[in-house]
Amino acid sequence: MGKAAFRVSVEGSDKVITCLADETLLKAMARQGISNIPVGCRNGGCGVCKIRVTKGEYETGKMSIKHVTQVERDDGYALACKAFPKSDLTVTVKNEE
């Protein structure tokens, strides 16, 4: 199985996250000792790692509708802990706090 690696740029940060094909963006970030996206529950429930993907393709796992509504999902919002990059991405941190 190929381990395709995608590069994820976080706006306002010069640290680029390298993400494996089957890895969430947040897990890849933590693995590389980077902290340009806030870390909360890591499991889609708390909304702390909310981002908006402005460029690129990705898939998501289950996320709490309270933190990412359907309208937002259609508009590129996601939780980094549940976002699986499928190409190089550019993202913006959208932490609600």
């Binding site: 909360g40 529950c41 890591r42 429930g45 709490s64």
Partner: peptide, 8 residues
Amino acid sequence: FFDPSGNR
């Protein structure tokens, strides 16, 4: 720790 839905 957190459950798989983020509940602590």
